[in-house]
Design a protein around this nucleic acid. Structure first.
Length: 365
DNA sequence: CATCCGTGGAA
DNA sequence: TTTCCAAGGAT
């Protein structure tokens, strides 16, 4: 195939649309597209099937900064339990937050229900088909609005996710580091978008990035764009360049596992901020300096015979946390008493701490 | 533009 | 073990 030439690639945006390159990538997608629960296959789309905007939106929100493998079971559970935007709008908020537990970035769940209520209540249950209107919905940013426009409505949009950033950075050997290079990558990606099959085009580039043009050890020999790729001879795995990341500090805290019969005392975290709105174990403050046991127990939510019951490490986006776990039996009227089976409604960090604390006393399992 | 916001699989 | 990073958004 003859893709774009070096001369074309040297300018910021190719003068003419690289149609053979697009055709090669779409043909690759027809043969190798991933089959995903929220996706209409290229064959089905060619036969006239259209994606359900609700399912496209739900999947896109779940996939924000989240791997397909991690998000998929959540998508299956959510779409079965709340099959329409009206159903999701009517969901009990605590149940929705519990169902989201473990998926992370919990502001997404808060925005999810806010968005569903806006669409169901003010927009007649119909998702907007214009990018600017989608962009105005809670939790829908530039990427997600473009993705819904392309995938659900099959309208041209400049979809730029981490996969496409990587593909474009390699195709044009972009030397500027992310995240500053994002505008340049967006311009280059826009130059590739054509009028044909906008939804398949976006998903083709994402699948190409996920299956072939991978972060490490890209399979260039299987790439339909290899002939046009400037980075292929320059070390494709070194693109995109990235600015150095800030070091991740460590914080220390104590978590308290208060048991009463076979129930655990939980709290609801404040509605915003880290793990906002989620069920949680009561904890001390999380600070830079480690806690001595006696000092930590003074922070416990109720007076009891607290015993050290282990320690966990957990990594958040911008800090690492060491959590010492203390366990006791007792009462605490203000608690949200929850049976052991209900602990999975908590974010992973607390589930991890609860498991450590319970395993220190196996008869409670 | 910088910071905050989760999680877990892979290397 | 550490490091990277994934279908980003809000402020």
């Amino acid at each position: 195939m003859h893709g774009i030439t070096i001369d074309q690639a040297m300018v910021s945006v190719p003068e003419s649309p690289p149609q053979p390159l697009r055709a090669a990538i779409l043909a690759w997608y027809d043969a190798h597209a991933r089959r995903l629960p929220w996706r209409v296959s290229p064959a089905a789309r060619a036969a006239g099937s259209r994606a359900d905007p609700y399912r496209v939106w739900l999947s896109e929100v779940m996939l924000q900064q989240t791997t397909v493998a991690h998000a998929t079971p959540y998508f299956v559970a959510f779409s079965r339990r709340w099959p329409t935007v009206e159903a999701l709008a009517a969901a009990d908020e605590a149940e929705l937050m519990a169902a989201w537990a473990g998926l992370g970035y919990y502001a997404r769940a808060r925005n999810l229900i806010a968005c569903a209520r806006k669409v169901a209540g003010q927009l007649g249950g119909v998702f907007p088909d214009q990018e600017a209107d989608l962009r105005a919905l809670p939790g829908v940013g530039g990427y997600t609005a473009a993705a819904i426009t392309a995938i659900a409505f099959d309208q041209p949009a400049n979809v730029l996710d981490a996969n496409i950033e990587r593909v474009v950075a390699r195709l044009f050997a972009v030397e500027a580091p992310l995240p500053a290079a994002k505008a340049e990558l967006a311009q280059l990606a826009q130059g590739l978008v054509g009028p044909e099959r906008p939804g398949d085009w976006a998903q083709a580039l994402m699948d190409l990035g996920a299956l072939v043009c991978t972060p490490a050890a890209p399979a260039c020999e299987r790439c339909p764009a290899a002939g046009a790729c400037r980075a292929r001879r320059l070390g494709p795995e070194t693109y995109p360049r990235r600015s150095p990341k800030a070091a991740r500090p460590r914080r220390h805290g104590a978590a308290f596992l208060l048991l009463n019969e076979d129930e655990v005392a939980l709290v609801r975290r404040p509605p915003k901020g880290l793990l906002g709105g989620m069920l949680a174990l009561p904890t001390s403050e999380w600070r830079a300096r480690p806690w001595a046991d006696a000092e930590a127990v003074a922070e416990a939510p109720a007076a009891a015979d607290w015993r050290a019951a282990g320690e966990i490490d957990h990594v958040f986006t911008h800090f690492a946390l060491t959590l010492r776990v203390f366990r006791a039996e007792g009462d605490w009227p203000e608690a949200i008493w929850t049976p052991l089976a209900g602990l999975e409604a908590m974010p992973s960090v607390f589930l991890k701490a609860a498991r450590v604390g319970l395993l220190a006393q196996p008869q409670l399992l």
